[in-house]
């Protein structure tokens, strides 16, 4: 099992190197001159050149690349032009916000989509099956920022059920001491139920807007998988042996149907992390999505590169996590090396 994990990890190295090269090249061919931006509006040609030299931007590309990779190996992602902070510091500070939002969104999607897909699979062609298809299509049809705006309009502006959609925590709540970086959990650890509830309240609308996005693939996958499993030979056996219906559906059907769903969870999670960018903008969420947008708008090379490299690493880690989850639920994977 350890061997298998190590193997998966090593097999990810080439793609990581690829990502580093590609992001470097792309971010340096992006339009916009950061030196001009940083030298300020009143800059002269000389001061721009000077800024360029200070930032190392006057070096030939290959030389810049070597420097960049050398720094990267030491965990130095460079310094953001915008914040003046090391990119790594920025990212580490902002990552928990995005992670918390994404996890809650995923949780919401799973809690809604999996039962819906299962129910539809057990009663194919029934009204619940049509409902499943309808909901899922509708949820996927609207762009997530639009859904977000509608939700804000209805639940904040009209009904007043949701707190003001700005940031992770309303200003009059203390930020809990950092343990996990998740406000909801850290507040609970600190024993501050009120703050935990407030943080959760802030999360509801953005998490739903984001999670709606993942409903379609999850529900569809669950439904197809469960239908496939229910048609398989071992289900016929289970019926022939006279096992109770509940046992057949849960222990024999559902657990097997879950395997492909677990498999796509990693993909869906990274897909949501990407979709975060817009949702964070709408809800003023201080996550990495907002950071990335600002970096792109200002040609903040180091920040862009750092963001993409971090996403790539996350993606690899996520898939590793999914692999481990797979080993837990599917005995066949454990021996497969």
């Amino acid at each position: 099992m350890i061997k298998l994990i190590a193997k998966r990890f090593l097999s990810a190295v080439p793609s990581l190197i690829g990502v580093i090269i590609v992001t470097f090249v792309i971010s340096h061919t992006l339009p916009g001159d950061p030196a001009a931006y940083f030298a300020g509006p009143s800059a002269t040609a000389e001061s721009i050149a000077e800024t360029k030299a200070r930032l190392g931007l006057d070096q030939p590309l290959p030389a810049q690349f070597v420097t960049y990779v050398g720094d990267l190996v030491q965990g130095d992602l460079g310094r953001s032009f915008n914040s003046g902070q090391p990119v790594l510091t920025d990212l580490v500070r902002r990552l928990p916000a995005s992670f918390e939002l994404t996890l809650y969104a995923l949780l919401f999607a799973i809690v809604v989509a999996v039962p819906l897909g299962l129910w539809a699979a057990v009663n194919p062609g029934s009204w619940i099956d049509h409902l499943c298809r309808g909901t899922v299509t509708a949820a996927a049809a609207f762009p997530s920022f639009f859904t977000a705006l509608v939700l804000i309009f209805v639940f904040y502006y009209k009904l007043g059920w949701a707190p003001s959609p700005i940031g992770r925590l309303a200003i009059y709540f203390p930020v809990p001491p950092t343990v996990t970086g998740f406000f909801t959990i850290d507040a609970l650890i600190a024993g501050d139920v009120g703050t935990a509830r407030a943080a959760l309240g802030q999360l509801v609308l953005p998490a739903i807007s984001l999670g709606l996005f993942a409903l379609a693939p999850l529900a569809r996958m669950t439904r197809a998988s469960m239908i496939g499993v229910l048609g398989s030979e071992f289900i016929t056996t289970a019926r022939a042996e006279g096992l109770p219906r509940r046992k057949i559906l849960w222990t024999y059907g559902f657990r097997n149907a879950l395997l492909p769903v677990v498999n796509i969870l990693g993909m869906i999670f990274s897909f949501l992390l990407g979709a975060n960018v817009l949702i964070e903008q709408v809800f003023g969420w201080p996550g990495i999505g907002t950071y990335a947008v600002e970096a792109v708008l200002t040609s903040d090379y180091a920040a862009i590169q750092g963001f993409v490299v971090m996403m790539a690493v996350l993606y690899i880690l996520l898939n590793l996590g999914v692999d481990i989850l797979n080993m837990i639920v599917d005995p066949r994977v454990r021996y497969d090396d």
Binding site: S232, E233, F234, T236, T237, A238, R239, A240, E241, G242, L243, P244, R245, T251, Y252, R255, N256, L259, V329, D330, P331, R332
Partner: peptide, 25 residues
């Protein structure tokens, strides 16, 4: 009929491996 299965009548199949739940001991 479900209550008859197993007790009164039961069945075994050609491809026994596929007829067993792959992820249950």
């Amino acid at each position: 009929v479900a209550s008859l299965r197993g007790k009164r009548m039961t069945m075994i199949f050609q491809n026994a491996r596929a007829a067993l739940n792959p992820i249950r001991s």
